[in-house]
Design a protein around this nucleic acid. Structure first.
Length: 351
DNA sequence: AATTCGGGGCA
DNA sequence: TGCCCAGAATT
């Protein structure tokens, strides 16, 4: 169905029914307590491709560390990544940090309400622009996330909603009187009733306006994307330790787990040879810790930790961006989940 | 338009 | 195991 073929009566009836339902049943989420732009900004960054239940554990602690956007702008990147540890998509954390700095330097510390200025901030895309503008500032800007995409595709019985189509439909549906609540009402519907599988159409407040419901195609809207084969990779890790500490290395800023700390990946080289290559003197024979399997979205990794004790007195590391950490001395070292498992496994092996 | 970015929860 | 989640940036 084309966006411009939606009647005005349909739009207004649908909006009223959905907002009434939202007013009665909206979940009490931490970022719905107020519309402080900094709190909304942080919530939208954290919620990118991440479930509400996951974000809740990180949300309030974030503001204890970084109570204001100025505090965030002045924080060290290590501390920012540590607060983000385990949340994934770590570029978001670095972008949020940079956004805070841009706001401090170019907007006098005030988050802009203008969509064009929001869109120019690092890590703020089309969706986040509309979400922040509407929720924090009551600007009637459309926003389309995964939930809203599904809801709109079903309402208009559209099998393959393109980005253009979604923009047009969302813009047509924007509610000028309550832009933020409207954005959230659509997302809430997708998260609670209009779910990908087994949607609760019998409980849906807008089923009488739903094209897919009328056509009996709800489960097929939108059409599933074609699946890709996820490659598997064996990744050896060098667990070099001495004096009760183990060597970690900062990963490059770009690419997988960028900016986080991890065990070095020696490639084809053995653990003892690798130790020598970074200026360390091996002590005794290398050993192996249990494999750690980890499934990234686009990669299935099998980490093979190769342990090698080294001399901490006679040698010193030549590798860039490395640090020694021991039991309970991780400090602001942000470790990815799989690396944390290897670290804990090493601790256990040391007694 | 297609890829690359984490991690967790659930059928 | 497969799927998807309050997506953005890059190509």
């Amino acid at each position: 169905m084309q966006p411009d073929s939606i009647s005005a009566d349909t739009v207004s009836g649908l909006r009223r029914a959905l907002l009434d339902h939202y007013d009665r049943t909206a979940r009490d989420l931490p970022w719905r307590r107020d519309t402080d732009p900094y709190r909304i900004l942080v919530s939208e960054f954290m919620l990118q491709q991440t479930r509400v239940e996951t974000v809740i554990r990180y949300y309030e602690p974030w503001f204890e560390r970084f109570p204001s956007i100025e505090a965030l702008a002045q924080a060290d990147e290590d501390e920012v990544l540590k607060a983000w540890e385990g949340l994934g998509y770590y570029r978001r954390a670095r972008n949020l940090h940079r956004t805070a700095q841009v706001v401090a330097e170019r907007h006098e510390g005030t988050i802009p309400s203008d969509p064009a200025e929001l869109r120019a901030l690092p890590g703020v895309g089309e969706y986040t622009t509309g979400a922040i503008a509407s929720i924090a500032f009551d600007v009637p800007a459309p926003a389309v996330d995964g939930n809203i995409r599904r809801v709109l595709a079903r309402l208009l019985d559209e099998e393959k909603p393109t980005a253009r189509w979604l923009r047009d439909v969302a813009a047509r549906f924007v509610f000028r009187h309550r832009p933020g609540d409207w954005t959230q009402a659509l997302m809430e519907l997708g998260a609670t009733l209009c779910t990908p599988k087994a949607p609760a159409c019998n409980a849906c407040p807008v089923s009488s306006w739903c094209g897919a419901y009328a056509a009996g195609t709800v489960e097929d809207r939108p059409a599933p994307s074609k699946k890709r084969v996820v490659p598997s990779r064996v990744i050896p890790l060098a667990v070099l330790h001495g004096a009760g500490e183990v060597l970690l290395q900062r990963r490059p800023a770009e690419g997988l787990l960028g900016g986080l700390w991890a065990f070095p990946e020696p490639g084809e080289v053995g653990a003892s040879d690798f130790a020598v290559s970074v200026g360390l003197e091996p002590i005794g024979e290398p050993s192996i810790l249990p494999e750690v399997e980890h499934r990234f979205t686009h990669l299935h990794a099998r980490y093979v930790p190769m342990v090698q004790e080294v001399d901490r007195i006679r040698g010193s590391v030549k590798a860039e961006g490395s640090r020694w950490v021991g039991r309970g001395r991780l400090g602001d070292t942000a470790l990815p989940v799989a690396q944390r498992k290897v670290f804990d496994s090493w601790l256990k092996s040391m007694g």
